[in-house]
Design a protein around this nucleic acid. Sequence first.
DNA 1: CTTGAAGTTAAACAAACGTTTGATTAGGAT
DNA 2: ATCCTAATCAAACGTTTGTTTAACTTCAAG
Lengths: 214, 214
Amino acid sequence: MKNKSDNKEPKMDSRERILQAAVSLFARHGFAATGMRELAAHAEVNISMVGYFFGSKKGVLKEILDSFLSGYLAIAREELAGAGDLHARLARFIVSAVSYFEVQRDSLIIAISELPHDDPEIIEHKAGWARQMVGIVNREVCQPHAAETGKHIPPTSFSPMLTALMASRYLFAPVMEKVEPGSSETVNREEYAKMIVGLVLHGISGSESRATTS
Amino acid sequence: MKNKSDNKEPKMDSRERILQAAVSLFARHGFAATGMRELAAHAEVNISMVGYFFGSKKGVLKEILDSFLSGYLAIAREELAGAGDLHARLARFIVSAVSYFEVQRDSLIIAISELPHDDPEIIEHKAGWARQMVGIVNREVCQPHAAETGKHIPPTSFSPMLTALMASRYLFAPVMEKVEPGSSETVNREEYAKMIVGLVLHGISGSESRATTS
DNA sequence: CTTGAAGTTAAACAAACGTTTGATTAGGAT
DNA sequence: ATCCTAATCAAACGTTTGTTTAACTTCAAG
């Protein structure tokens, strides 16, 4: 039965190629605007393989979303609920999350672009991940912060704000490339993460692109 | 007299009903997932009226985008380039922009959802508005801030960050409603705007919200 | 009364949509 | 040698897509 090598996927080929092509196409044209034939062609696969492996086109989207969101949640669990004070843990989380967003930028774009659309099947999936994220942010950020300063920040506001802030660079990238092609002002990933850490911890005065001692 | 683009007096009916239905449907199902027949039905209009008034389905999207983005840019011009110091002007801009986003939330969702998609016709429109916005933010925020503190913030990073931060509440709203159907922790628009002003000016320590009994 | 443009309509168009079917291949297990 | 199952394929399914056409209604201006 399971006589093959330690490989879960039979061929490590077609299924993965479909996923890879879908991430790229969904991010660039949008999920609804990407056709099965275009997807199959880019994956170099017969059309019916998509249904064979994922059930339907929406099944591919759900797999992409779940994979990306579970990774994001894992980072939140690891960095927000670790050692150190609130500022240190927030800074670690932002640096890790921005790295994750950069590597998975296409999945990030898909997740955010499809966020507001009201397909019940998709909404329920995202609500599950969001519920866990809000719980972590509430326990590890909002409650400690309230205990320290007496000021209450609702996690249902703060989680989206933090995520949107970190995602802005990758969301706007396709437009910003047209705004400033080959600019001397481009910031690399580490500087960008530090800007956000500074902004979140100290406001605009702490958000310069050059690092300061902390 | 051939006047089909800016004469609002004759009917103020079919054309406006199409726009109104399109804003609602594009925000909820996405642009590509909304069909002409669904749009015409919601607008209570014959299918061919869309082509008659807007040329094509994409023409409707361009009108919605241009209308929303020009309004956003006008607010930036008015509030960022007014009287007062940097902090006061930023605070005024955030309060105004959040109000605008709340009223135009569906258009905001459309603008952000379609942001990353690479339709050349649409990208060029958005790049035009983004270019002007970056110019304003650079002149009225980044340069004064650099003169004050010596710290340089690239406007091509700061503009998307600010926009994404203010938009997060409306982008995530459809998901967050499913996360927290009970409204004990909901924040109204003014409190939300104050949270963002505090965060942008002073970081997390300045982003308190009025504590409510839970 | 005539004319013409603006508004509106039903009908039709080819193209593309997502999905399903049934046949076929390949290869290890019985 | 036979069987089973996963993988792959070409072809076709019935819908739905965005757009276009030509005819019809209003209705104010000539």
